[in-house]
């Protein structure tokens, strides 16, 4: 088992380094990461591949031991992406449609609220760009999104986007994600609806 030191690295660098390390050492990898998004993202990356993660805190961060055979062969980048069968809603703006901004914002929150009443719901909602403004403190959509999360809808907001809008510490619902996970989830989805 090899050990890689990703401390001090911002996402998605630790995830990319972990993926590369697993390709050269399929039996397992020990990843040293900082707490917060790097730890969460590396752990999620491994778990979505069916790998086991053992986390240990040490003085300066976390040690993640990743092992197991996984659901897909991480050593073979030529394999097609495994389809998850998920229905993903990709929210790239805090406004719905083009035109008046106030109307666009009204339509977007109305849409989010209406998702609670529809028979079919997405498995996952990914928030990118100004879409992340729907998931932070003070947003009118927090109550509805929290209810959707309680119903099993996975909510993930782009960490880069939260950082750009200086809202990183204000995420009120769901979790932070990175472009690596976002790209994989979009490519593996059964269907993606973009707003």
């Amino acid at each position: 088992m090899i050990t890689i030191n990703c401390r001090g690295q911002a996402c998605p660098a630790p995830v990319i380094a972990t993926k590369r390390a697993l390709e050269t050492s399929p039996s397992g990898v020990c990843v040293l990461v900082d707490n917060g998004a790097p730890r969460e993202n590396v752990t999620r990356f491994a778990q979505t591949r069916g790998l086991q993660v053992t986390e240990t805190a040490d003085g300066s961060g976390w040690s993640l031991v990743i092992h197991g055979s996984g659901r897909q062969t991480v050593a073979s980048p030529t394999l097609p992406v495994q389809t998850t069968g998920e229905r993903i809603l990709l929210v790239t703006s805090d406004r719905l449609g083009e035109g008046d901004d106030e109307l666009g914002r009204l339509l977007m929150r109305n849409f989010i609220h209406t998702l609670l009443e529809t028979v079919e719901r997405p498995d996952r909602i990914l928030f990118l760009n100004s879409g992340v403004l729907l998931t932070v403190q003070g947003a009118e959509t927090i109550e509805a999104l929290s209810a959707l999360a309680d119903l099993g809808v996975d909510l993930a907001s782009c960490g880069v986007c939260l950082d750009f809008y200086k809202k990183k510490d204000q995420l009120a619902v769901g979790k932070t994600t990175n472009m690596f996970s976002t790209a994989e989830q979009l490519l593996g989805a059964a269907s993606v609806v973009r707003l």
Binding site: R109, E140, A144
Partner: peptide, 16 residues
């Protein structure tokens, strides 16, 4: 207060 879509049983023209 919270602006929400009106429930189906109470729908008016704009539905808000």
């Amino acid at each position: 207060i919270l602006l929400i879509p009106a429930p189906r049983s109470l729908q008016a023209d704009c539905g808000l």
